[in-house]
Simulated assay, not measured.
Amino acid sequence: MNTDTLQTFLLLAELKNYTHTANQLFVAQSTVSNRIQELEAELGKPLFVRSRKQLRLTEQGERFLAYARRILELTQSAAEELNSMSHYRFSLRIGSTNTIYDCHLSRRLVDYSLSHPETRLNIVIGHSHALIQMLQDHTLDMAFSYVPYAKKGIECSLFATDELLLVTAPQNREYGQGILRRELTGIPYLYCDFPFQEVGSYIRDLFPAGHAFPLEIDRSANLLPFLCGGKGYSFLPASIVRDSIDRGMLLPIPLLDFSIPPVSCYLLTCGVAGSDSLLAALREG
C-alpha cells in the first residue's frame, strides 16, 4: 500500500470517474484501474461498486476512506518532520478552528514566527473533531478547539473565554438603546453557524424554525465586510469586533431581556520540544 495508490483511491472516491481521475493525476486510465484493483486485493475487500451509470464506494470503501486520509497525513507529517530537522532547531505543528485562529492566534503566531526563526511552524485550520483526531494520530503537537478533550498523553486546559456581542453598522440606530429577544426576528440578522458548544444552538433557537436569514456564512470573520457596510446585525466574538467598535465602524447593541453564554476555547497539547516558549507567547499575547 503506497502513497500513489492511496492518493488515487481518495481522488476516485471524490470524482467517482476513472477518466477524470486519470486526467487529474496525469496517468493512463488503466493505471487508475490497476491501482484500485491492487488496493482491493491487498485489503481483501471491494472498495467501489461499479456499474455502467455510476461509481460509488462500498460500505468497506466508506470506512477505509478515513483511514486512507490519516495514512497519507501521517506519511506527509513524518517526511516534513525529518526534512525540517536539518534546517530548524524545532518544528511545531499547530491546529486551530477558523474562529479561534482569527480571534486569538493569528497576530500572536506572526509575532512568534518573526522572533523565533529557528522554529518551523506548520499551521492547520480545521474543525474541532478533525483536529482532535490529528492530535491523537500525532500529526499535530497542539490544537485549539471548542471541544474540551482529555486523554492519556493529551493535556487539556482553558485557553480563552470570549463574549459574543450583537453588532451592526453605526447608521443602524433603531436598537441603539437595546433590543428585546422578541425583536430579533424583525431585524436583518446575518447568520453564522458557530461551532461553539451549546452557544451555537442557543443562538439558532432565538429564531423560529425555518427562519429565512438574508445572509448565511460559515466563517464568522467573513461577516465583518457585510456588517461594516450596513447589511444587518449579527452576534460575533468580542475579540473579532472590538477593533471595529473602537474605530467607530461597528455599534454594539445592548441585550435588554436576555443574554448569550460566553464561549470557551481549549488548548490541547502533546508534550514536544520547543513548545514551551510558544505556549508562553500565546498565553501572554
Rank of each mutant, 00 (worst) to 15 (best):
P46Q: 14
L206N: 05
S259K: 11
R63Q: 09
L255D: 07
Y191C: 04
P188G: 05
L12R: 13
L251T: 15
R52T: 11
G153A: 10
R283S: 10
V49K: 08
L6P: 04
E198A: 09
L215Y: 10
Y189P: 02
D111F: 00
T3L: 06
S91C: 15
S128I: 01
L256M: 07
V49T: 15
T19I: 07
R93K: 15
F226P: 04
L227Y: 02
S30R: 11
A79Y: 07
S77C: 14
V32M: 13
S277R: 05
H87N: 15
Q60E: 13
Y189A: 01
E155S: 11
H116T: 15
L47S: 05
P214L: 01
R89C: 00
A130G: 05
L165R: 06
E183N: 12
F26C: 09
L278V: 10
D276W: 00
E174I: 01
F196G: 03
A221R: 10
L190C: 11
D111T: 07
R182Q: 14
S244N: 14
F196R: 07
Y175R: 08
L121A: 10
V241L: 06
L256Y: 02
S157M: 05
L268I: 13
S106T: 04
E216V: 11
V32W: 09
I36A: 05
S201P: 06
P208I: 08
A143M: 04
I187C: 11
G230N: 08
V241C: 15
R108K: 05
E174V: 04
L251D: 09
Q54D: 03
H87P: 12
G176Y: 03
A22W: 06
L43N: 08
R63L: 08
C192I: 03
V167T: 09
Q29V: 14
I240W: 00
I253M: 03
D111E: 06
L184M: 13
A22K: 02
L236K: 02
E14A: 09
H138G: 01
Y146M: 05
I154T: 07
Q60H: 12
P252H: 00
A41Y: 09
R89F: 00
P170W: 07
S234A: 14
Q171C: 02
R204A: 11
P188E: 07
K16Y: 08
E284W: 04
S84E: 13
I240G: 02
Q37R: 13
P237N: 02
R56P: 03
P208H: 09
G248H: 02
S51C: 06
P237E: 05
D141H: 12
M1R: 13
P148W: 02
T185G: 03
P261D: 09
V124Q: 15
L65H: 10
L47P: 00
E118Q: 15
S86E: 14
R93G: 03
G232V: 04
G230D: 07
A78W: 00
Q60G: 06
A22M: 13
T168F: 04
D193H: 06
L250S: 03
N122M: 00
R242I: 14
I125A: 01
T19D: 12
P252N: 07
T58S: 15
S277Q: 11
N17A: 09
E14P: 10
T185M: 13
R56K: 14
D257H: 03
D205I: 00
S145T: 09
R181T: 05
K45P: 00
Y146H: 08
I203N: 08
R242W: 04
T75C: 02
E163W: 06
S96T: 14
A68G: 10
G248Y: 08
Y175S: 00
Y233G: 01
E216T: 13
